[in-house]
Every structure is written in structure tokens, then in C-alpha cells.
Write a protein that binds this DNA or RNA. Structure first.
Lengths: 112, 112
DNA sequence: TTGACATATTCCCATATAGGAATATATATT
DNA sequence: AATATATATTCCTATATGGGAATATGTCAA
């Protein structure tokens, strides 16, 4: 079997750096495809294709304005990612604490 | 160009469902490859290969115990994902508020 | 040393990319 | 209608995948 399609879910869609960049650019203001092309320095067809993927998984919304397409990030689509990572939050806090404790124990040894 | 390697970063590694499952299983207790095979119902070579990817990006740590390999999740590796998604947190809270407001406005219309 | 057990690696293949180039579609303008 | 502008899609190709099957490696036990 091959890798899962990029349009399978938000996790797969967001694996690509360009698409993460796009989502950030569209997070707090609508933007045109042309705007994105300018800001990312990527060819227009590439941008359109990435936007297609993001649309398919519901990570962006579009509306037309004349011959321009106005895209914006649909933050709700990112929420599942946030929640999945949150389940590990306690864990890394814990692990960092242990690392800190060890470091302090080491320090104490140094002092003696 | 093809898709970026799964070992490029945590984003790519975590795109695969199996690997997310593995990380959850190894989050709060060390486990053996065999344990994972049993819990996931996946062939051993598959599990080993997924673990290899997770190791390469630093999402799991291993230690040997006789002929068993004990794996555990390295939560710190997931943190970048959490932080990236956090930048959208305000946004979805905001968008949900707007949706709610619209719903309430609709309701008001109904009452009249 | 030999055999059993646990895990890792290799080989094979169908599949899906991402980007580049070319082209199609849609809308505005004259 | 003809042209220009904005965006989307198609075709191409090198590349990496995930799973299955087979095999290699490593460690313990007798």
C-alpha cells in the first residue's frame, strides 16, 4: 500500500510545509491566490493545488469576488490536531520536570 | 518533486495513523514491539518500520532489555506540533463565537 | 554450539504525490 | 466579440511510501 492521500485528513494535509505556511498566511486575513503567490514565492499552479488539498479537508474556505478567489483559514479544522497533541501535554511537562530534577541533582553533586 | 520523507519532521511522521496510535500506546508506559503487535493487530515488520521512523524524528526513545526492546514516547517531540496548532487557537474560538452569534440572531428572527 | 525467541532489515510493488510546463476555465474590460 | 487577467486543471516524471513475504541480526537457554 502507498502512503495515505494528502486529502485523507488534516494530519496528512498539514504535513506539507507549504500548506502550513499558507494556513498561517490565511489565518487572520483573507487572501487572493495571487497574494499568496507573491508572499510565498511559489508558482501559481502550485499554490492552487495546495489550496485544493486544503479545501478538500476543510482547512480553508473560499468565496469568489469577481475574478479573484478569496481564501481564508478555517481554524476549526485544525482543532483535532491541537487536541491530539494536547493528550501529550501532561507528559512532556512531566518529562521536563524529571530532566530538571536530574540536572539539579547533578549540580548538588558538583557542590560537594 | 515527490512528497517529503516521513522522517523529515514530526509533522510528516505523525501523518500516518498507525504511528499516531503507536505514540499514544507508548505515551504513559514503555512497551515491547511484541506488545504493540498484539495491541495494534499489525504485522511485526510493520510495527518495527513505524518505530524506526518515529525514532528517526525523535518521537520515541528505546532501551534494550535482553532480547526485548522497550519503546516509549518522547513527548517533547510532539511539542512543536502543539505549538503550531496553538497559533490558531484564538482564531477558532473567535470563529465559533461568530457562528454562535449568528445562530442567536436567527433565533431572534424566528421569535418575531 | 544449537535452537528458540524477539526484533530489524531487505526486496517487491501498487500508489500518490510535488513541482514544472502547458492548457483550460471563468470573469472583467473595451 | 475579442482580449486581458485570475485561477484551476491536466499531463509528465522522479521519488518515497506502506504492507507483505522472506530473511538477517541479536540475545537467551539448554
Amino acid at each position: 500500500m502507498a502512503r495515505a492521500a494528502t486529502t485523507t485528513d488534516a494530519f496528512n494535509a498539514v504535513a506539507e510545509v507549504r500548506r502550513r505556511e499558507i494556513l498561517q498566511h490565511l489565518a487572520f486575513s483573507e487572501m487572493t491566490v495571487g497574494d499568496l503567490v507573491g508572499r510565498l514565492g511559489v508558482e501559481q499552479p502550485s499554490v492552487s493545488k495546495h489550496l485544493r488539498v486544503l479545501r478538500d479537508v476543510g482547512l480553508v474556505r473560499v468565496r469568489r469576488n469577481g475574478r479573484h478567489m478569496l481564501y481564508r483559514t478555517n481554524a476549526a479544522g485544525i482543532r483535532p490536531l491541537h487536541e491530539w497533541t494536547s493528550t501529550f501535554e501532561r507528559l512532556w511537562a512531566h518529562q521536563l520536570t524529571r530532566i530538571k530534577e536530574r540536572a539539579e541533582a547533578e549540580e548538588k553533586v558538583q557542590e560537594e
